[in-house]
């Protein structure tokens, strides 16, 4: 028997929890919609084996959720969790350079664009953002 444990994080208004079956329909709808055109998945620290480093990712489901600070709130909780509990000393985020909303979230999280990051192509329209714990940048 193996046990897999997924922690939950709470903010003032939100809970970040393991996905569950009842999330399936809306998630499928979002993946089919234009909202998902820039992303591969929902929020969290994601580190596929083929990626250079761990990465923050976020995806809000609905236009109705935009502009309420959810993205920043959630990612601030996740950022602190990443430093304090996962123990990472840095994390990245890949953001299309015309994705102004996500760039604003990244700025509020204290991130900056890493001009030296490896790019898949010379004119790659994706900016590599980098985050460090406070005082370690």
């Amino acid at each position: 028997m193996s046990t897999v444990a997924i922690p939950a994080l709470e903010t003032d208004r939100l809970i970040l929890r393991a996905p569950q079956m009842s999330d399936g329909d809306i998630f499928a709808d979002v993946l089919k919609s234009a909202r998902s055109r820039r992303v591969g998945g929902p929020g969290g620290a994601w580190f596929p084996a083929t990626w250079p480093k761990p990465d923050f990712g976020w995806l809000l489901y609905d236009d109705a959720h935009d502009g309420q600070g959810y993205g920043t709130k959630v990612m601030a909780a996740l950022r602190d969790f990443t430093w304090d509990h996962v123990g990472l000393s840095t994390c990245g985020a890949y953001i299309a350079n015309d994705n102004i909303a996500s760039a604003a979230v990244a700025t509020r999280l204290g991130g900056s664009i890493d001009e030296d990051a490896r790019r898949s192509e010379k004119d790659d329209p994706i900016d590599a953002w980098r985050f460090y714990p406070k005082g370690k940048a």
């Binding site: 028997m1 193996s2 046990t3 897999v4 444990a5 997924i6 939950a8 393991a18």
Partner: peptide
Amino acid sequence: MTVAFHIPE
């Protein structure tokens, strides 16, 4: 609140 699930062997 942690979600834990078990995978039998």
